[in-house]
Amino acid sequence: MENTINTGYILELKEVSVSYTPGKYAVDKVNARIAPNTVTAIMGPSGCGKSTLLHAINRLHELYPGISTTGEILLKGENIFRMNPMKVRRLAGMVFQRPNPFPTMSISGNVLAGYKLNNISLNKKEKGLIVERSLRSVNLWDEVKDVLNKKGTFLSGGQQQRLCIARALALKPELLLMDEPTSALDPISTSRIEDLILELKKEYTIIIVTHNMSQAARISDNAMFMYLGKLVEYGTTRQMFTKPENKRTEDYLTGSFG
């Protein structure tokens, strides 16, 4: 049972490769370890495999035939490929590029969607507590507490994205995976989400894919730089932005390419 030894890291990637077509790797032998209560930014030019790597962590690739993932991903020391994918996805919540609240559900229904989808029945009191706790944690409670029964799609884009974060947090995940969560939002909504990420760090571990280098600099503790599927550099954000070890990272960060 070597896989269950707790190493102090919440997530370990060992030789993780993902290929869409046999022989062509979108993610190529990535090794990394992520400590709890940190924000890790994954950066890199378009098509470098950032989102692919993120989706591998909660096994969303299995939706699409033909994608193969190899290597080991240990979540709290346990190999996720030996776990039930539904459990993996509960432990690693995901926030997508565009806000995608469920259009038929109300605001509170969206927050509770994870419980409904997992057939976990709750009484009215529990529901109320979860909705309030989750919406408070994304600073949305005061804005929506009087319209909890309205459809989630009536909210503004930024509010919808916070609702989607609340929906992921409602299940109390260990890890929050964010795939360019602010790329479809205006600057004000973006800064609110960034502030939120810094607050959420106290309770959760966050991995965020971002195109926006200044965003990575503002919110992340550690940063990964990926290029052509390979993890070129991984270290603290401060070091990467001040003294990058790799020439490619430096070129990307200074805008020479990408």
Binding site: K87, R89, R167
Partner: peptide, 21 residues
């Protein structure tokens, strides 16, 4: 597609995602 992905990412089973979302 994002609706289906969002449902599955919450740990929903395939049937639950189809029937409930």
């Amino acid at each position: 597609d994002s609706l289906k992905e969002a449902g599955l990412a919450l740990g929903g089973s395939y049937s639950a995602v189809v029937l409930r979302i």
